[in-house]
Each structure stands twice: as C-alpha cells, then as structure tokens.
C-alpha cells in the first residue's frame, strides 16, 4: 500500500487567523493525507521540532500577520540545520506578489493566497512529492 503523504500545517508567529489553516488541514485530510496541525502562535523552532518528530514530507505555513519574510526563511533554515532540508515547504496567507517571488526563489514550493481552490493545493503537494528524488535504500 502506498504510504500517506504526511503534512504539518503550522501557524508560526503571533496572528490568530486560523480559518485558512483549518480549512486547508481538513481538505488535505479529505484528500487522503495524514495531517498534523500545530495550533497557534508557534515559534519557528517549535514548528521544525514538530516537523522532525512527526517525520513529515510537507510543512504548510499559514501567516496573515505580514511576518512571512522573517518566519518562512527561518523555518527553512532550521529545517536544513536539522537535516530535513528535503521537506517541502508551502506558505499561505496575505503575501504580496513581490514577497511571494522572493520566497519561491528561496526554495518555497508554492505560495497560496486568498481565493485559492483547495484542490490546487492538493495538486501542488502531489507534484512536489513526485518531483522529489527517490529516498535512498536503507
């Protein structure tokens, strides 16, 4: 049987807007993924610790406070330091286009703004998983 894709949906930073994060979490679960939700007000350190502990394939960061240019690169940096640089990172929220381009250039797989269809997010995760180099035999 194919293993389920494991996704951590995380709310780093201080804003409490979790409508999007919860809707996306429910949609990914309905799409057959294993979804872990961090809860609110997480530090980047706590997000990465959860990602490692849960051995996830994907981290989805939801940020609506405008702090994305600080928090997203910080999560990526901590993932790399923890040897989990292969975890695909997605971001969603109120993220202006110019910032989205910078984040994507920095290795974020995709950025989803308001009005995104959840099926688009599901498809993007599948695409990122398919593009991933096969895991070495162990």
């Amino acid at each position: 049987m194919e293993e389920k894709i494991r996704v951590l949906v995380a709310k780093p930073g201080l804003d409490g807007h979790d409508r999007g994060a919860r809707v996306v979490a429910a949609a990914l679960k309905d799409a057959g993924m294993e979804v872990i939700y961090t809860g609110l007000h997480q530090t980047p350190e706590a997000v990465v610790e959860a990602a490692i502990q849960e051995d996830v394939d994907v981290v989805g960061l939801s940020i609506l406070s405008g702090a994305h240019m600080t928090l997203v690169p910080r999560v990526q940096e901590l993932l790399r330091e923890a040897g989990a640089g292969d975890v695909a990172v997605f971001a969603g929220g109120i993220i202006p286009d110019a910032d989205a381009e910078t984040l994507k250039a920095g290795g974020v797989s995709a950025i989803f703004g308001p009005g995104t269809d959840t099926s688009e997010i599901v498809a993007a995760i599948h695409a990122a998983m398919a593009a991933r180099p096969a895991a070495p035999e162990s």
């Binding site: 930073g13 201080l14 804003d15 007000h41 530090t43 609506l64 406070s65 405008g66 702090a67 994305h68 240019m69 600080t70 928090l71």
Partner: peptide, 22 residues
Amino acid sequence: DMPTIMGYDSDHARSLGEVGRM
C-alpha cells in the same frame, strides 16, 4: 500590531518580523 495584541514589546524575540505589520 500582533506583538501589542499579544503583550510583547517591540524588542522581544517573538516580535521579530511582526512589528507595525498588522
């Protein structure tokens, strides 16, 4: 802004990137 709403001063570590944003 979020640090004010959450009770952190602007020079607190948790305020990084959030000061004056929202």
